[in-house]
């Protein structure tokens, strides 16, 4: 299970990093998925660019209603409730504790999760639900892709091999947004069979905005648009949440069978979990 041989560079600037990528490098940030894939003989890079020494990539800033998460911001950063302002911080704090365990969270990065694009990734589901934008840099320049267009399939994204994912930007959530994150998995160590993140805004007794992210409900992370549509204008109530769960399960999700979770079971869990997550997210 040893990594195959590669050359190693540790660029000190973003420009040097993208040069290395142009030369075919794979990025090492937290390394918790890259080294895993190397051990499992799924990744055989000829060149690895360790970006841990690039200044500035570890910045986490919130300004003008936007949160910017640099490529080196570790998962564990989001465990502190105050790291990100408002309900977005609350949602991240609820989600992050379902990611692996503390030693992995100490090294792994949010941006790395988006680059890896595992279908069960919590961050990826939240990125699409929250209209995050992915910033990609290469020797050809910088571009931004909405998360909704970024994920193309299991471990497949719109990122070109020579592009460095430098940052992820999220719009902050309004202070009156209710959030919740729930995960269904077999043991503390397994990937989620289904995970759901939700953000709900209720004004004057009706739901005015709903965001639902689904992890491992398709070959890529999903935003449950159909479920969200059933909620807008509805009163936050158990029947409304149940109906949204049904919509997420039958219209939004496209579950892939796995051992211990065939399509029927997955669809059922999605319906149950979406309804439960919404109930928890509904502002009291």
């Amino acid at each position: 299970m040893k990594p195959s041989a590669f050359d190693y560079v540790a660029p000190r600037t973003v420009a040097d990093a993208v040069d290395a990528l142009a030369a075919g490098a794979q990025v090492l940030a937290g390394g918790q998925s890259l080294l895993l894939d190397m051990h499992l003989q799924r990744a055989h890079p000829a060149l690895v660019a360790d970006i841990n020494h690039v200044p500035g990539l570890d910045e986490l800033t919130a300004s003008d209603g936007t949160l910017t998460v640099g490529a080196l911001v570790r998962h564990q950063t989001f465990e502190s409730p105050g790291a990100v302002p408002g309900p977005l911080g609350d949602l991240f704090a609820r989600a992050v504790v379902t990611i692996a365990h503390p030693p992995i969270r100490a090294r792994g990065t949010m941006a790395g999760s988006l680059a890896w694009a595992h279908p069960a990734s919590e961050w990826c589901a939240l990125a699409v639900a929250l209209d995050a934008v992915v910033e990609l840099r290469s020797t050809r320049g910088t571009r931004e892709i909405p998360a909704g267009e970024y994920f193309l399939g299991p471990f497949q994204t719109a990122r070109e091999p020579d592009e460095l994912l430098t940052a992820v930007r999220y719009p902050l959530l309004a202070p009156d947004t209710g959030v919740a994150f729930t995960e269904h998995r077999r043991t503390g160590f397994s990937f989620a069979q289904v995970a759901v993140g939700a953000a709900l805004t209720v004004r004057d007794g009706v739901i005015t905005e709903a965001r639902i992210g689904l992890a491992n409900c398709a070959d890529r992370p999903l935003r449950a648009h159909a479920a969200e549509r059933t909620l807008i204008g509805a009163e936050p109530s158990s029947p409304a949440f149940t109906m949204a769960g049904e919509a997420a399960s039958t219209e939004d999700a496209a579950p892939v069978p796995e051992p211990y979770a065939d399509v029927d079971y997955r669809r059922h869990v999605i319906a149950v979990l979406v309804a439960r997550t919404l109930r928890e997210a509904a502002p009291v």
Partner: peptide
């Protein structure tokens, strides 16, 4: 991650 041994959580 596929063959799931019990963890302390269980």
């Amino acid at each position: 991650l596929d063959y799931l041994l019990p963890t302390y959580a269980e």
